[in-house]
Amino acid sequence: RIYPLMRVTLTTSDGASVTVSRQLTKHSGFIEKAITDMAVDDNAVPLSAVAVDVDDATLKLVIEWLTEHRDDALPYPEKTDEERRADDIPAWDQAFVQKWDTKEDQQQTLYAVITAADKLDIKGLLDMTCKTLANKINGKTVEEMREILQLECDFTEEELAEIRKENAWCEN
């Protein structure tokens, strides 16, 4: 049972502390497991601090997303064999990530939030941010993908020829 008014203090990797409602942290598998493992009194306010391996700036973004999604149903729907798609990101989430487009380090911010969602086990945020990355790649040529991701071609001539033969139908 989750008590929505209960609060938990999170300490970040760069030493900051943030106190948030259990209504938000219930969406994080990592934090909920940490609270369970502490076996603290559920009535303790705030609960003992939970250390998260996420920096303060990234955690603020995570909390902003969790605040918007505090009423999302739990557990997060399990993945099925259905074809997955990246064009179904909710409008609020799209606006949330578009705000980073003006930042000089937008790609690093996206990377930080994806890894934070993974570490904190927040499945909805992880899916949404991975879809955002997929949308940045979607429709791009091989050369554009290399530029966005800064990846060198390390194939041998033979491997490259094989890839090109396999991709002849879809290379634009």
Binding site: R84, R85, A86, Q107, L110, Y111, I114, T115, D118, L126, D127, C130, K131, L133, A134, K136, I137, N138, G139, K140, T141, V142, M145, I148, L149, Q150, L151, E166, N167, W169, C170, E171
Partner: peptide
């Protein structure tokens, strides 16, 4: 830039899963 190779392989696989097949191949 997005340092995709720094992600764990399962997360890169998750990104792949959201791509249409032609982007997946490219």
């Amino acid at each position: 830039y997005f340092p995709i190779l720094s992600l764990p392989s399962e997360l890169i696989g998750l990104v792949f899963s959201f791509l249409p097949i032609e982007d997946r191949m490219r």
